[in-house]
Design a protein around this nucleic acid. Structure first.
Lengths: 342, 342
DNA sequence: TTGAAAGCGATACCAA
DNA sequence: TTGGTATCGCTTTCAA
């Protein structure tokens, strides 16, 4: 900027005025400045600008994993709104690792992002309190923060959705419905378990721990879980899977059906694609429609949009106590959830 | 930092030393400084640091759409490597809009990112030349840059993969293979068309434009394209779909089969999931295995990793002429590509 | 309409 | 081992 001033033969401040389209610059002077800018290939350094002005016009987004379609949908929505607000987005995946979450958040804070949108991996967010006190706005998405700050939160109606999904199976005559989901340490998994239990309770059915299998979703675990479930004296006739990854892992396990007992499952794997038992999954996923899988769908983009809107409202000065929003879910009926008990 | 110095009763510079773990500070002094930092809740401002040091320890990533699994896989790989290098990542989706790509890239440059990884949407990258001259490293991923700078590029073997996929269909007896893909304005689509044509040529088959349908993938277009193709006097017995989205849109269209003529397609939509014609797709996608879809797979994570590694090698001073890397593809045989002609 | 000087929060260089 | 001072590139404040 100094160089530009020198070339244009004006003061630094005048260049600043021109660059920022501030009023009160003679047209011919502005012309000279523009020429100098052009010839030098000058670009304003937004880092310096930011340092002086206090706001960085950037936000930090910490999610579980961008490569997961649920979070990538959320990301895109956040990005779009941020761009509308003239804001850039730092993105980071925590990989469900609390220390990595913390590392990312603190790195973003050190860059003085104006705000944060966090899908918490950990349960302890005390580390955030000083940052929030220092003026960084934070919105939690998909899961509420653990111990620590009381900040805006947007989640979906996990319990209600799981309840609706389970009730759907019960309405089709099932009495033994298994519940498969991620680790109980994850908020959404626990909430969905709660909804499942509520559905059983209001149908007057007992809660049977033997029908519950929770843990990080992967194919080996899904196979083992199904194997165990179908060997029970009183096996399930339907499955409720508590998130997208678990649903997919379960479908794979059902299709592979390498565990011998699975071959004897009602419906059998004769038709490679039709699930051999009734199944309803939490989370919609790509091609679920083609596979005919009934799901309880959330809207990841809406979650991201809502969180971003909340954040920018805070950034534009809105006060008031922390909000907690809950977004609805929708049951998408596609066939797999309407199979009768075998 | 000034406040910390005041509280600790030392000079600014000493605080800086402590904060940066520079050697040559008395242990007891350091202790006092740490105490002051703690009591004030001080955090270093990396923006200011960056201004002084010249490097921002951040990179910009511009992709087509984070919500697309292909690009989100790429993103995650870039993120991971960047984090290892102590670098934060600005992410932005261009949505295949050249002006938005440009806007994002220039915004990143204004923040003085150390480097860029770009999946180009536009074909004119002249606007980047001054930035590169100014010292910002750039790597193009998935597609080469258009007119403008000559920078490092990582793509996959699009033509080779498409050729292999087409040859696979020909080897199973097909003589009429349709080619469906994204707009010819997109590099990868054109390259894949080239591979398709090569396969036909080396099999001594004519290239028939009637069998080619290119354009932005969506379900309505897929339906219309299939409708047209199957009404041809000499209709295709197999389809080669040129990217993940097109494949999925085509599968949906085949399953829905609302266009009357599709109901008469060989194989028919009687079994809801089995494609009624032989089909091979470029790009692997979630559940392709369950649906039994044969694909030519690229590895988006590897693409991201390779691009990021190339970028960081440049950032650590590696010189030499721009490189152009080409990653291999793999044919994953799953059933849909091995159906004989009807 | 234009400019000079102070300062944002850190680091670099040189001196004590 | 410690401190002073200039400086990074810009905006802000006040004066001309």
């Amino acid at each position: 900027m100094n160089d530009v001033a020198a070339v244009a033969g004006v003061a630094l401040k005048t260049v600043s005025r021109v660059v920022n389209n501030e009023p009160g610059v003679n047209a011919s002077t502005a012309e000279r400045v523009h020429a100098a800018i052009e010839s030098l290939g000058y670009r304003r350094n937004d880092g310096a600008r930011t340092l002086r002005r206090g706001r960085t016009a950037s936000i930090g987004l910490v999610i579980e994993d961008v490569a997961d379609p649920f979070y990538s949908g959320l990301s895109r929505a956040v990005e779009d709104i941020a761009l509308d607000e003239g804001c850039l987005v730092f993105t980071g995946s925590s990989g469900e690792d609390p220390s990595r979450e913390r590392e990312l958040v603190l790195a973003f804070c050190a860059r003085r992002v104006d705000g944060l949108i966090i899908v918490p991996a950990g349960t302890d967010h005390d580390y955030l309190t000083p940052e929030i006190d220092a003026g960084i706005a934070a919105v939690f998405a998909d899961r509420p923060p653990g111990a620590g700050p009381d900040a805006d939160t947007v989640v979906c109606d996990n319990a209600g959705g799981a309840r609706a999904g389970t009730e759907h199976l019960l309405a089709h005559g099932h009495r033994r419905v298994a519940f498969l989901a991620d680790s109980p340490s994850i908020f959404t998994a626990t909430e969905r378990l709660r909804g499942y239990r509520e559905a059983l309770a209001s149908a007057g059915l007992p809660y049977d721990e033997e029908l519950v299998a929770m843990g990080p979703p992967d194919r080996a675990r899904a196979l083992a879980d199904l194997d165990r479930l179908f060997r029970l004296a009183d096996p399930p006739t339907a499955l409720f899977t508590g998130n997208g990854q678990t649903t997919v892992a379960t479908l794979r396990a059902l299709a592979a059906a390498t565990a011998p007992v699975l071959r004897a499952v009602p419906g059998g794997p004769a038709d490679r694609h039709a699930p051999p038992v009734a199944i309803v999954g939490f989370d919609d996923f790509q091609l679920a429609d083609l596979l005919g899988i009934t799901v309880v769908a959330q809207d990841p983009a809406r979650l991201g949009r809502t969180a971003a809107e909340l954040l920018f409202r805070r950034l534009s000065g809105e006060n008031g106590p922390p909000q907690r929003l809950e977004l609805p879910t929708r049951l998408l009926v596609r066939g797999s959830g309407e199979l009768p008990p075998a």
